[in-house]
Design a protein around this nucleic acid. Structure first.
Lengths: 143, 143
DNA sequence: CAAATTACTTCGTGCCACGAACAATCACAA
DNA sequence: TTGTGATTGTTCGTGGCACGAAGTAATTTG
């Protein structure tokens, strides 16, 4: 059971792991993965639907429903943009903010535990590489 | 835009990236993420529903539908287990196998591209750490 | 001001995942 | 051998997610 695996395949497996963790923690907070993702993106700011759909890599029509459901659960509100009467800004409610923090704390804890067995140097190096990969490739999103 | 991020948060972002890649490549092969995941798991062997649901971290009832749809698309077949008349074994069809390879090749290529800018040493170290994290935590699944 | 663009929503479709309830089969023990 | 209890897989109902096409309202542009 000492099978080693290429970088690509490793990435896929890691993704699978993290995804499951994400979902599991979400369930503990009564959040779906999509909702949690959205809350994270909204942390501390209001975001218009168009921008939000870009950030989440979703079609606008998909986002409408997502926001609807989150709003019904009281996690989020739609507000009017005074400068543009077409536009809508999505904002966390205090409820939503609380849920987000609960989720985030729990998730961070679980993820850190995932890396806990690594020697400090290795973990640091890993984090650094992680950052680099992210930075490189989210250059796609760069403004 | 030089913001650095903790390991946990980095993991989440990386996961998001890979997930999107996964979905995108899947769409190119006319596969959903769930289907692709299943095909990968079936590579080269027959697996019973119960075991498969374990491997994919799905409820059995969820799997039934997934297999149904995959079967309708000719990716997969259900076969009877001669030793247990309750059991069903799921197997790739030649079609499914072909789809899997197409998917896998494309995905691997895209993922490697993601890491292409890393110096070789860093990439190797990254892969090694990846393997370790996976091994540690999929000890959960260990048989 | 008319036309093109932008922001968002609605609608219809298909997929995904869950849990509860169920039928068939198997394993084992009395 | 005949229960009894576990295991295998399915069905059904519910809710959520995501897409694309089409539509409405407001803004921008020529």
């Amino acid at each position: 059971m000492k099978e080693t695996v290429g970088a690509a395949s490793g990435l896929v497996r890691l993704t699978f792991l993290v995804q499951n963790l994400y979902a599991e923690v979400g369930r503990g907070c009564d959040l779906t993965a999509a909702q949690a993702q959205m809350l994270c993106t909204l942390a501390g700011r209001s975001v218009g639907m168009a921008e939000l759909s870009g950030l989440l890599c979703l079609e606008r029509s998909s986002l409408t429903g997502l926001v609807d459901r989150a709003q019904q659960r009281g996690l989020v509100v739609r507000e009017n943009d005074p400068h543009d009467r077409r536009a809508v800004k999505v904002t966390l409610t205090p409820e939503g903010s609380k849920a987000l923090h609960r989720f985030n704390d729990e998730l961070t804890e679980r993820l850190d535990k995932l890396l806990a067995d690594l020697p400090a140097t290795e973990r640091d190096r890993f984090a650094k590489t992680l950052n680099r990969v992210i930075a490189d490739s989210s250059a796609v999103f760069a403004d």
